[in-house]
Amino acid sequence: MVRPQDRKFVTADPDKCIGCCVCEYACSMVNEKTFNPTKSRIRAMRLGPLINLAVTCRHCEDPACVAACPRDALKQDDDTGIIRVDENACNGCGWCISACQFGAMNMHPDKKIVFTCNSCTDNETKEPQCVKWCPEEALTYVTAETLAQKYRQKAVKNLFQTAEENKAK
């Protein structure tokens, strides 16, 4: 049994992500055996040249998508946190899509049922394919704790750097 805090998910670093969609292509290539971003479980968002971020399922604790499903078609995997879709139960109503705050639930264009990140694992790197392919190394497969540590370190570094710079002035 994996502790909930050890569950990993894919996250994009806003400083590094450039919205190139390589993750989308890698995802559809591996999971759908074709090239088609509308069948990708991760989507890149570019709101302008300087505002880019790839977004996918964060395997939330007590996930809203699961709670919203009127047909019990969604279940969260205890070990991994992955949201599993029962393809026979899902009728594509999209309640989970409106429930997800990250827009990480997608409607499959052919199957007309929802799908989301399955943390597909590469044999070599033991990480999802999008992480492996990201040319900017903007995507990481992390636990919430390592993510928090990363930003804490950054915040502290910035704080001291600013203090040093102010001193220098």
């Binding site: 190139c20 969609c21 390589v22 300087l50 880019n52 040319p135």
Partner: peptide, 19 residues
Amino acid sequence: VKKIVGCATCGMRCDHIAV
């Protein structure tokens, strides 16, 4: 130059966004 971004599917990047 604030950031260097790129196009869809590209493994390099070249768009030097200047502000």
